[in-house]
């Protein structure tokens, strides 16, 4: 028993030395889920497109950990996309920083950061994308994180094909952040 205690003590002592060598933040961090419920959107060809706005300063979980966030480990989405046109549509989600709000399809495609791409919705139907499935369509992970670290940003849903007419509802943003739990 004494031997086991001594071995445990030695392990702990050496582990502590290694921990201090690594840096305190590396030891004390954990992963916390932050979930943001976003406003519904509608978009159609030929109409002015209104973006959705995200303000993470109003998200309690984000605010609780804001000072200690080391990184965003994971991003995911859920949403329901209804295709109101008589041709199939490939849904796309774009984001842009808070100081760049776009109102036309062309401007969004040219300047926005593509987040989700290729969500095919048949004509006249509604498709549900849940958290796990959203990873099949996720793009530009590193660029999107930079926008999110700005805390306020815009989001847009359009379709890859034109013309399109879509409604997007029940949009949820899932984030796993690494910081002090």
């Amino acid at each position: 028993m004494k031997n086991i205690f001594l071995i445990g003590l030695r392990t702990l002592a050496v582990a502590l030395i290694a921990f201090f060598a690594m840096g305190a933040s590396c030891i004390t961090t954990g992963n916390v889920m932050v979930v943001e419920y976003l406003d519904d959107l509608s978009a159609a060809t030929g109409q002015t497109i209104t973006s959705g706005d995200v303000n993470l300063e109003e998200n309690e979980d984000w605010q609780d950990h804001k000072e200690d966030i080391n990184g965003i480990d994971d991003l995911g989405f859920a949403c329901r996309i209804t295709n109101n046109s008589n041709a199939s549509a490939s849904g796309q989600l774009y984001v842009s920083p808070n100081d760049k709000d776009y109102t036309t399809e062309a401007a969004i495609r040219a300047n926005g950061i593509l987040v989700l791409d290729g969500i095919v919705v048949p004509a006249g139907e509604t498709r549900e994308i849940k958290w796990q499935e959203s990873y099949d369509y996720l793009k530009n992970f590193e660029l999107v994180k930079e926008v999110i670290f700005g805390e306020q940003f815009h989001y847009y849903f359009i379709a890859a094909e034109t013309p399109f007419d879509i409604d997007v509802t029940d949009i949820v943003l899932f984030m796993s952040i690494n910081g002090k739990p």
Partner: peptide
């Protein structure tokens, strides 16, 4: 085990995080 890493996209922190 401690798996340390740094999120280069974060402009607000130079600290490393980790998964344990």
């Amino acid at each position: 085990f401690i798996f340390p890493y740094k999120d280069e996209a974060n402009p607000n922190s130079d600290d490393k995080g980790s998964r344990k």
